[in-house]
Design a protein around this nucleic acid. Structure first.
Lengths: 204, 204
DNA sequence: TTTGGAATTCCACTATAGGAAACAAATCTC
DNA sequence: GAGATTTGTTTCCTATAGTGGAATTCCAAA
């Protein structure tokens, strides 16, 4: 399995094999870090000792299957916002969230993101649904850039997609758009209800 | 939102929670039997002792991750298959509201595809909307394989996604799933209305 | 039934996984 | 800045995973 920050174009092997000793530790550490959890947090959640977890992450031990299984559960069951951290590596310029303690992630006043898959390390596309607060224009002058491509589909609501190179695009439920996400982009809801948007992002 | 796999309140033993060795041993044994191999064959191939393998298959030991990994390789089991019952499945999806248990149907439909972007040559992802004819089961015995990954989001209707390696997955509007499209897959609408599905496909 | 290969159990033994606690290194308070 | 607190690493030590070998049971075919 690949690290969480899979910037690389990936070998696209269709058969995923179990991570070898080295990859396993890194994968677990990445996942934990991505959620802002401490060794103790995860260890306790998985019902193991934090020293054990430390050794596993550093590949100093050959963990039992049961332990690995519990760790996977613990790391994937928590908050679904795991992706925010991993996607952050692609975003240059601005963070759209602020971290509090213990893996909780506070969304911005404007956006609320919800990841649509887990086991990010093994996936190349990143699908998520964003709720865009109604008529919130607090960030409409700043946009996001992250190398790669992005597909967007409006589930509900009405919004305007602002981009760096094109004129703003008014969109309604059912509309969709495909663009290079290296180009600055951002959304503003223009109706009274929050807009719900499905995004599928592909890193460059 | 909850993971799709967790929508089955009833038998936690089989679906969601790790059957704690029970399933692991059985899975390995089944795989071995399916190939007509003896304990010795597999043990030697995986570089472990016969007695060890016997214990693992009978859930009399908590095997190490490394051992399980080697067994997997020997038996040509892929990670998703291995973890499908213990950890999160590789088919990971989310639903946006609760509902009751699901049936298991293995049928396929007729599709009508609608591309959501043009200039395909310059794009890596392929987004399109498919209308799946209501209760059309004409192709129930054939599925599609194409190297790469695929994300699917149900816009409306009710359908079952059946795949080569996993149990059929009942899905409703708002549900989504991410899977390796090299694995055989197909859909069938199970309600009276045509199902509308958004697909984003990424070639290998 | 007999028979021969396959599977399970038992045994003594070694290596090590995993936990507790000590330790170190940051980070936070006042 | 000193002390307290938190996070991660590194000792130990015990429990057990994993081993080959041999005895025993299982099981299907002759």
């Amino acid at each position: 399995m690949e690290p969480l920050q899979n910037d690389d174009p990936a070998p696209a092997s269709d058969t995923t094999e179990a991570p070898d000793g080295e990859a396993l530790g890194k994968m677990i550490r990445d996942a934990r870090k991505a959620k802002g959890l401490t060794l103790e947090d995860v260890a306790k959640s998985a019902g193991i000792g934090r020293s054990t977890l430390s050794k596993i992450e550093n590949n100093q031990t050959n963990a039992s299957f049961e332990i690995v299984r519990r760790l996977m559960q613990s790391l994937e069951l928590e908050t679904p916002q795991l992706f925010v951290q991993s996607a952050q590596s692609d975003i240059s310029g601005r963070r759209d969230y602020t971290r509090t303690g213990h893996g909780e992630i506070r969304e911005t006043p404007t956006y609320h993101h919800e990841l649509l898959c887990n086991e990010l390390a093994s996936k190349r596309m990143l699908p998520y649904i964003s709720t865009i607060k109604a008529r919130d224009v607090t960030q409409y002058d700043s946009w996001v850039r992250h190398k790669g491509e992005e597909f967007m589909y409006v589930i509900s609501g009405e919004l305007v997609l602002y981009t760096e190179h094109y004129r703003p695009l008014k969109m309604q439920a059912g509309d969709s758009v495909y663009y290079d996400s290296g180009m600055g982009h951002g959304c503003v809801s223009i109706s009274d209800e929050d807009a719900k948007v499905l995004w599928v992002s592909l890193g460059g």
